[in-house]
Design a protein around this nucleic acid. Structure first.
Lengths: 156, 156
DNA sequence: CCAGTTAGTTAGCGTTGCTAACGAATATGC
DNA sequence: GCATATTCGTTAGCAACGCTAACTAACTGG
């Protein structure tokens, strides 16, 4: 099945580096990472779906409701209800579009931005502490890999 | 606040490699990666919570209901209902403990294992395809980083 | 101007999360 | 050994989230 031995690559043994194996380890470690960081979200007052949707609006700028639903991989009725609930909590607001009266544009409020950033800061702080205890070489590897991974994820 | 300039590290510029920045990029890329891979789960017939719980039982072996709830970061009543539903679908079975009659031990059935592995294979296949188009140096970086990340995640 | 398409909502259902309260079994203390 | 406390899991009941089906309103193309 595997063609790992053909034309041995330039350097350090390629046996552990088949795309299949890397995919597996990457997948498992990403799941594990986010699972642990999710513990920090309890005290944010934001549910998972709300934090995720709010994040898209805060970092991606104002969005139509449909675009937001697509980004969150959720159907329009689900996002419609989510947006209404979050609007009533003052996290975001819905505004009409000047060109097309059908669309609803969603924008984060100052409060929404503040709350999301606080939740995000808690997650990142926890991860940062763990990274601080790594030797600089390992940190460099993670830095390169993270940038790479971001690019790979966009092409998925 | 940052002490990035003190005692300049051995090699290539450390400016982008503060733990804070790496944490941020890692976090974002992990979210993006799993968000995309989640699209594959639609055709597995397993909901997110079910796939996740089943995965813990398949890879971690038989578990008590409470341990499973803790692993999934969910309260016992939630896991109790989830397990009952999955048992009725033939994905796993509940068996009593010989030593302690209070505990319920949960084990995956052959069907459960098969279905989980199929879902997992779909996710991994998609990621693998993306990785195959990377130059081997980048793949090596991801390989090292994935192993590192797995270790970091365990200490979180 | 009329048919078709698109954006979003409403209605109604199943699943998944919780807390509170309980039953049963085990552990502890006197 | 027996009363009490603790632990494990379940039941009941609620809120949040996911879906599809069906609808209204608005835009588009002839």
């Amino acid at each position: 099945m595997t063609d790992a031995r053909q034309a041995a690559p330039e350097s350090a043994a390629a046996e552990g580096r088949s795309p299949a194996r890397v995919a597996d380890t990457l997948h498992r470690s990403a799941i594990q990472l986010l699972r642990r960081l999710r513990q920090e979200d309890r005290r944010s007052g934001l549910s998972g779906p709300r934090a995720s949707a709010l994040s898209v609006v805060v970092f991606g700028g104002p969005q139509t409701l449909g675009a937001l639903a697509a980004a969150e991989q959720v159907r329009p009725p689900t996002m419609s209800r989510l947006v209404r609930a979050m609007e009533s909590e003052g996290l975001l607001l819905r505004e009409g579009d000047a060109k097309d009266a059908r669309v609803v544009r969603v924008r984060a409020t100052a409060k929404g931005i503040r709350i999301l950033q606080a939740a995000r800061a808690r997650r990142l702080a926890r991860l940062q502490v763990a990274l601080e205890s790594l030797p600089s070489g390992e940190l460099a590897t993670l830095d390169e890999a993270a940038a790479l991974l971001e690019r790979v994820a966009r092409t998925l």
